[in-house]
């Protein structure tokens, strides 16, 4: 399937209906999950604020997924010199930054009633998401500051791969740092301790966010392909 989709024409034909279809799936899943989440009883400790989890945790998942996609697309582009993979990498970076920013903002809003502070350094996950956000910003800035598109693509691929290798190390180091400077309160949501009444909406919204990410990624990649086509047509018109 991937080999077929690597052909730009087939990709454009496929994504033409796949992007809106995924969008519809995303809307259904997110709507369903949020409805269940709003209907769930308030948590005995966190009260009503537990519902922020349903918009926050999936955003953090998808931001990690987005960096993995950026790394994979950059790898394919670097090794096989495939133009579509580069278009996909360029398309996914702002999306990843957006989901990461969403995770940070909702996490901060959740932190205020939970910990009494907008930002708690004691939570290692929050800190590693912040570093992830900076990695996305660096990638976008590097790409934007190089005019030659081919050179920008190569440099950005190398940076994405450096980031991909570094990301587990950063995650490990931040967790390790957190165990050293044990914060005042560390929340342990997630895992098996989560009651099914919360787990189901969380998973539904998570699947919905992933579908939304897929839809937006396809749409943005399409836009990138069109942009390049337009640029080369302009060039041809100027030459003739």
């Amino acid at each position: 399937m991937i080999a077929t989709l690597a052909n730009p024409l087939k990709f454009m034909a496929f994504s033409r209906w796949a992007a809106p279809a995924l969008g519809v799936v995303a809307a259904i899943l997110i709507g369903w999950g949020l409805a269940l989440g709003l209907a769930a009883p308030p948590d005995y400790q966190q009260g009503e604020t537990v519902r922020i989890m349903f918009v926050h945790v999936p955003a953090a998942w998808v931001s990690m997924l987005a960096y993995a996609c950026l790394g994979a697309a950059s790898f394919v582009s670097l090794v096989f010199r495939h133009a579509l993979a580069d278009a996909a990498a360029r398309a996914v970076a702002p999306l990843g930054a957006m989901f990461t920013a969403m995770a940070l903002i909702t996490g901060s809003l959740w932190g205020r009633p939970m910990w009494g502070a907008w930002w708690v350094w004691g939570d290692a996950r929050l800190v590693s998401v912040l570093v992830l956000f900076l990695l996305f910003v660096g990638y976008i800035a590097l790409r934007a500051s190089i005019e030659d598109e081919v050179k920008a693509a190569r440099a950005a691929e190398i940076l994405a791969l450096i980031g991909l290798i570094n990301l587990p190390v950063i995650k490990f180091s931040v967790n390790w740092w957190n165990t050293l400077h044990q914060g005042e309160s560390i929340m342990r949501a997630g895992g098996s301790t989560l009651a099914p009444v919360y787990l189901l909406p969380l998973l539904l919204v998570g699947a919905g966010y992933s579908a939304a990410f897929g839809a937006l990624w396809l749409a943005r990649t399409r836009g990138e392909v069109w942009r390049r086509r337009g640029a080369s047509l302009t060039l041809q018109a100027a030459l003739s």
């Binding site: 500051s145 190089i146 005019e147 050179k151 440099a155 190398i158 570094n166 950063i170």
Partner: peptide, 27 residues
């Protein structure tokens, strides 16, 4: 080396390098 082709060296280098330097700073 990555910032070579760009035209705003210094700040760009700081932006792309500092997040990668979190592990050594922590350790």
């Amino acid at each position: 080396a990555l910032a070579l082709v760009s035209r705003r060296g210094g700040v760009l280098i700081a932006l792309i390098v500092l997040p990668l330097l979190t592990p050594p700073v922590i350790f």
